[in-house]
Computed example of a mutant assay.
Amino acid sequence: MHIQTAAVQTLRDFEHGAVVPSVHMASTFELDPATDDGVYAYQRGSNPTRAQLETVLSALDGARHGFAFASGMAATAAALSVLEVGDEVILPASVYGGTYRFVDLVLPKRGATARFVDDLGALTDADFTPATRAVFIETPANPTLRITDLRALVELAHRHGALVIVDNTFMTPVLQKPLALGADIVVQSATKYLAGHSDLLAGAVTVDDDGLADALRLAQKAEGGVLSPADSFRLIQAVKTLPLRLERQQANALAIVDFLRGCEDVAQVHYPGSHSEEEARVHASQASGTGAVVSFELAPELDRIAFLQALRYPAYAVSLGGVESLICRPATMTHEAMTPQARANAGISDELLRLSLGIEHAADLVADLEQALAAAR
């Protein structure tokens, strides 16, 4: 089944001939007094509507197990809950600011440590120690959009008994399937492309391994960061249009990249594969598109604030993946938890802007950028 079909047709046979699933809001479920058994018992452990969403998430990723959480960070925290006292996780220096905050401030209190490296692609056997339990990766990276070879990293990490955790938020299962490339755990901020309308907070984790699934199921039940039935239903419905939305968003991103690359007012433009021919080759081998996020820096003589204030369509706001275009300044918004030195190491300058393309008409977006650049001169 193609992913466009799976997004719509994974769930079937609803009650009363309905063509959409019911929303089961119950927090508790009646059990058999003779055995204390039941398919469901308490909403935190499981719920029919959340279970249906998790079936969809699994189908999209081609995974055996899927888990829905109350936010992308709840999903990331659950994935990192596999770490034990004394374990180490390796992460890229450019990792999302929320993940950086968690591994910098929370993880050490649980007895685990994080090690940041400038380039995961440069890792060798010498970088792994007996304590290295996992490697956490974003490809494309946020917000530099640098690419890492997933197959090569998986082979290296697995040789040392380390798990590979991939944040696939930027690509989604439509464009990249890390589990098929050997990754062990895939996390997504479902708030972004999966939900797609900037009105829903959610996270997703998918795995194939039964043992990892048990650990994630425990994280749901013990820590309680699960997605509500109402939001689970809304996410089921939103996912149905994910492939269509992303197709339009990618087309817009390509148009914007063409415009920015030809613009003298723009000093640098970043998109997946733009750093080098090798990164472009690697990305093409493991993903089926470039996604809909670009980042860029204005020429030094332009007024960044005037540019942002003049924009009519992209809202100056955090997040990405919605039907509306958004623009942000990572240094002070998405990655503000990082120290200035950490941002510098990650290639995140104070002038870098990240643009998430929506589904507006490309010509209108280009015209808006043109007039905002004129205002900034």
Results as ranks from 00 to 15, higher is better:
61 D>T: 01
154 V>L: 08
65 H>Q: 05
280 A>C: 05
339 T>W: 11
53 L>Y: 03
346 A>E: 06
281 R>W: 06
76 T>V: 15
122 A>N: 02
314 P>Q: 02
326 L>R: 15
13 D>G: 07
103 V>A: 11
88 E>G: 02
191 T>F: 01
168 N>M: 08
73 M>A: 03
277 E>K: 10
1 M>G: 13
332 T>S: 15
156 L>T: 06
91 L>C: 15
343 R>K: 15
213 A>F: 04
133 R>Q: 13
211 G>I: 02
161 G>Y: 03
242 L>Y: 02
131 A>M: 06
128 F>N: 10
111 G>L: 07
234 R>E: 13
373 L>C: 11
270 H>M: 08
90 I>H: 06
194 L>H: 07
170 F>E: 08
228 S>I: 07
132 T>A: 11
33 P>M: 12
249 Q>N: 03
161 G>P: 13
40 Y>R: 14
163 L>Q: 11
105 L>G: 05
202 A>S: 11
365 L>N: 00
77 A>T: 13
129 T>P: 10
333 M>A: 13
35 T>E: 04
137 I>M: 14
283 H>T: 02
162 A>M: 10
266 V>C: 09
93 A>P: 00
354 R>I: 01
363 A>N: 12
109 K>A: 09
353 L>H: 02
354 R>N: 01
354 R>M: 14
7 A>I: 10
119 D>S: 10
176 Q>P: 01
335 H>G: 10
349 S>F: 04
206 T>L: 04
9 Q>S: 14
230 A>F: 04
63 A>W: 05
83 L>T: 09
245 R>F: 05
125 D>I: 01
173 P>Y: 04
14 F>H: 14
47 N>T: 09
131 A>L: 07
41 A>Q: 10
324 E>D: 14
344 A>W: 01
368 D>G: 08
337 A>E: 15
34 A>H: 10
174 V>H: 03
161 G>W: 06
136 F>G: 06
179 L>G: 04
373 L>F: 09
51 A>C: 04
376 A>R: 09
368 D>C: 09
348 I>N: 05
6 A>H: 00
13 D>H: 14
99 T>H: 11
184 D>A: 03
274 S>N: 04
296 F>Q: 09
163 L>A: 10
114 A>I: 07
203 G>R: 04
73 M>Q: 12
161 G>I: 08
200 L>M: 09
178 P>W: 02
161 G>T: 07
54 E>P: 12
270 H>S: 13
274 S>G: 06
295 S>D: 09
181 L>V: 03
115 R>V: 10
203 G>I: 05
348 I>Q: 05
337 A>V: 02
38 G>E: 03
206 T>D: 05
183 A>Q: 03
153 L>Y: 02
363 A>D: 15
359 I>G: 02
136 F>D: 02
146 R>M: 12
245 R>T: 05
347 G>A: 09
112 A>T: 06
110 R>P: 00
276 S>H: 08
122 A>L: 08
342 A>M: 12
70 A>S: 15
366 V>N: 02
256 I>H: 01
367 A>M: 03
52 Q>R: 15
103 V>Q: 11
143 P>E: 07
201 L>N: 14
252 N>W: 06
210 D>P: 01
261 R>D: 10
346 A>H: 04
53 L>T: 06
365 L>S: 02
322 G>T: 12
99 T>V: 15
247 E>S: 15
